[in-house]
Nucleic acid binder design. Structure first.
Length: 477
RNA sequence: GGCGCGAUAGCAAAGCGGUUAUGCCGUGGCCUGCAAAGCCAUUUAGGCCGGUUCGACUCCGGCUCGCGCCUCCA
């Protein structure tokens, strides 16, 4: 029985889908005016893991993750670059796709964009005005009247009286109430705009998610997710908009993932302490990053540092090492197996991936001891549930994947395989093999000094040799 | 000021009212020509003060410290 922590209830609850065996899930995605950072990586990986687990559990999943492709920052950045917002957002959407693919994130079923749902937003705003939840102010902007919605604050646990309005941001004098938020902004010079009953303008930020979730998943759906920082005001406002429009509960369950932190501070664009995914991937294999994210519980803070990534890298190596002697074919998982039972129990308990990964390590120990192929198969197949361990173990350990990726763009390597001139620090695979043979001959002649010299040479280049009964193999350090 | 979260060994990170979490690192051993990997063993825990209990890291209360939201932010 799957239990999920519901922000709305502040407790773990047994998950009950609205429609049997179906899950409708909406996650707030990216505002595309820059490269994704590790915080975005966490959202993508976490909800990818969630969607995967629902699918493994037999649910038919409809996973929607939106793209915000019009907002203040996008407009500002586009103006700075002297390009259209369309050109700007297209570029960063492509970058986002590359990043998420690297991280093993399965594409959501739909990725609606704000600019293609303006009609739905206008329709919703009209309804809100008609129901007197919204009003047009003197400056032409349309605002949501927060006090007209009874449940305002129920998600974030805030009361209207206690919100410190104006403490950190200037109060908009056109609002009836300082807490009201904008649904439609009337056009300003040099800004993209659309026609509407309230004149040309563009949508406020929160309305897009209400409109798009409604259009793609219906007025009421199972799960709404996103980063913790969206809880207020974004998600609170979404609830106000959607529930006032449709007259029913919006999402049954709200999931919020914890922040990625740097030096115990939230990683964020405003603080400027963020690392983009692509920067990190220059140094670490994408699977290491995915592993790093999933080895912490999704609601816990996740501290980023090289030391932690190195730790994750070593840990992942242990799992792949256990796999390397086994040709594992993808197969169904025997969910009766004691370790699989443990794994399932962990995942069913609010997606406890750290515990699920501990199962993986116990299986790795078992594989190392027993050399049983079926245990290796279970390890790999349970890994697949988390989107881990699916690379060829030997290739992973030799660092081929990361090099393919980094150098594919430069046209150095053929991503589809074939005759690769695969290089680590100037050592091609051919050269490594030749040196291994040379060393084997030296060993045969009992010339250990020469054998050790060769090994040292390779060690210095970051290549570790391992002598086994079947001969010498190598891996990247 | 309001609301919320957290504090576990050198580092990271879980479960659990009593029985080895797990990983990285360290140490000793086995294996190896020597290594590496692996295996075996092993050192480091539960912020502080009270309470409940036969028994608490685990439940309750208080305190201290850290973090987050109340502005855009995943």
């Amino acid at each position: 029985m799957l239990k999920i922590y519901n922000t709305l209830a502040r407790a773990k609850q047994t998950f009950t889908p609205i429609t049997p065996n179906k899950v409708r899930m909406y996650v707030c995605g990216m505002t595309v005016y820059d490269y994704c950072h590790l915080g975005h990586a966490r959202v993508m990986v976490v909800f990818d893991m969630v969607a995967r687990w629902f699918r493994v559990s037999g649910y038919d999943v409809n996973y929607v993750r939106n793209i915000t492709d019009v907002d203040d920052k996008i407009i500002q950045r586009a103006n700075e670059n002297k390009e259209t917002i369309g050109e700007l957002t297209q570029r960063f959407i492509e970058a986002m796709d590359e990043d998420s693919q690297q991280l093993g994130v399965v594409r959501p079923d739909a990725e609606p964009r704000a600019t293609t749902h303006i009609d739905a937003m206008i329709d919703m705003i009209s309804q809100l005005i008609k129901k007197e939840h919204a009003y047009q102010a003197e400056n032409g902007d349309v605002f949501y009247a927060v006090r007209s919605f009874e449940g305002y604050g129920k998600l974030s646990g805030k009361s209207l009286e206690d919100l410190r309005v104006g403490e950190r941001v200037d109060v908009d004098t056109f609002k009836n109430d300082p807490l009201d938020f904008v649904l439609w902004k009337s056009v300003k010079p040099n800004e993209p705009h659309w026609d509407s009953p309230w004149g040309p303008g563009r949508p406020g930020w929160h309305i897009e998610c209400s409109a798009m979730s409604g259009q793609h998943l219906g007025p009421q759906f199972d799960i709404h997710g996103g980063g913790q920082d969206l809880q207020f005001p974004h998600h609170e406002n979404e609830i106000a908009q959607s529930e006032a429009t449709h007259g029913c509960q919006m999402a049954n369950l709200w999931m919020h993932n914890g922040f990625v932190r740097v030096d115990d501070e939230k990683m964020s664009k405003s603080l400027g302490n963020f690392f983009t995914i692509r920067t990190v991937l220059e140094q670490y294999d994408a699977e290491v990053v995915r592993f790093f994210i999933l080895r912490a519980h999704y609601r816990s803070p996740l501290n980023y540092s090289d030391q932690h990534l190195d730790d994750a890298k070593s840990s992942l190596m242990r799992l792949y090492t256990a796999l390397k002697e086994h040709e594992v074919t993808v197969a169904d998982i025997d969910w009766q197996h004691p370790q699989a039972v443990r794994f399932k129990a962990a995942m069913d308990d609010d997606f406890n991936t750290p515990e699920a990964i501990a199962v993986l390590f116990d299986l790795a120990s078992e594989v190392n001891k027993t050399k049983l192929a079926e245990t290796a198969a279970l390890l790999k197949n349970l890994g697949a549930v988390l989107g881990l361990l699916q690379q060829d173990a030997v290739e992973y350990l030799q660092g081929k994947a990361i090099n393919y990726t980094l150098n594919a763009e430069a046209g150095k390597y053929d991503l589809k395989g074939g005759d690769l001139d695969f290089v680590i620090n100037g050592y091609s695979e051919k050269k490594i093999d030749a040196l291994i043979e040379e060393r084997a001959n030296a060993k045969k002649d009992k010339n250990y000094a020469e054998a050790d010299r060769i090994r040292q040479e390779l060690t210095d280049a970051g290549i570790v040799l391992e002598d086994t009964p079947q001969g010498t193999t190598w891996r990247k350090v």
